[in-house]
Nucleic acid binder design. Structure first.
Lengths: 166, 166
DNA sequence: TACAAAATCACCCGAAAGTATGAATGTGTT
DNA sequence: AACACATTCATACTTTCGGGTGATTTTGTA
């Protein structure tokens, strides 16, 4: 069994409960001696005990009861992506060759740019193109200077406006 | 106040408790008469009452305590088809409120996201919104976790697909 | 009013991005 | 062969990002 921790926790409360019970019984014994319980007061006495111990039980239960049960419902991720215009001849997108030439962007650089636009990191782009991270850094650096931007996010935005990427 | 329901529920249990208490006291009175409780047996009698009512209290508490079953529904984002790329002459773009709500993106976060999509750095976004760099970092960090992405470029790409930015 | 969510800001630290420089290897052109 | 250019890679360095934590204030709503 793997209950030692819970048992430990419970035993702690149990100790407290035991102590409280002892104290209460002691107190009652004292009261009993002090006020010489007569038959008529017996019901009151028992009622008091009942009330006190009911309260004690409630308190005990609230202390011991496990905090809460969380039910986590996870919905599976679903992509309803519009079919990629890959092999479609009448594709809605065509790279703007004009802009490419104007900026003097090479083939490889365009590849990097496109992958960049999909949100890949340099490391991931390097993996996709089977080259080193440093190479991608060089490409992206050249890309930025050719496109006259400072950051990849700017490059992607500009590329979209120029029609270099979908 | 909107408590009538809870009070109703409690009162129901309270009735039961009162009834049970009455029955028990009756039973004890009977036992008392039956076995002529003597002074020596008093402690045992009280102990029994204490035990019984403690148990009763525990049972009561367990009954009354709300299960507190917190149901957390984690909805994974679903890509929605782009809001028809028809050639809109005038109104260029309307953000997808649906996606916004699903992801739980706040107003400020959306502002940051939009500026992010234009290629601005965190520092520049901070300047545009007249807040500190740290604030933008916090916003973007929350954005990324809400959108389930790791980088700003990914966030921008996904935002486009979800129709959150032009 | 009290509570929850949103918005703001700070600090630390590691990872990623970006800059600068240099260099080796292809590849097509003249 | 000589040349320009693209591609590849490296090292070193700076800047920006992003994660994590915690705190305060504002604001809308029950």
């Amino acid at each position: 069994m793997n209950m030692p921790i819970r048992l430990k926790a419970i035993s702690k409360h149990t100790l407290w409960y035991g102590a409280a019970l002892a104290v209460l019984l002691f107190l009652m014994k004292w009261l009993e001696l002090r006020y010489l319980i007569i038959d008529n007061a017996m019901d009151i006495y028992i009622g008091a005990i009942a009330l006190i111990f009911t309260a004690l039980g409630i308190w005990l239960a609230l202390k011991l009861v496990k905090p809460k049960t969380e039910t986590i419902v996870v919905e599976k991720e679903v992509y309803i992506e519009k079919p990629v215009p890959l092999a479609q001849p009448n594709s809605s997108f065509a790279i703007n060759e004009n802009s490419l030439e104007k900026l003097g962007i090479s083939n490889r650089e365009l590849e990097v740019l496109i992958l960049m636009a999909t949100g890949l990191s340099n490391q991931e782009i390097a993996a996709h193109l089977f080259v080193s991270l440093n190479t991608i850094k060089t490409h992206s650096s050249n890309l930025f200077s050719k496109m006259d931007v400072k950051r990849r996010t700017q490059a992607v935005d500009k590329a979209r406006k120029l029609g270099l990427v979908p």
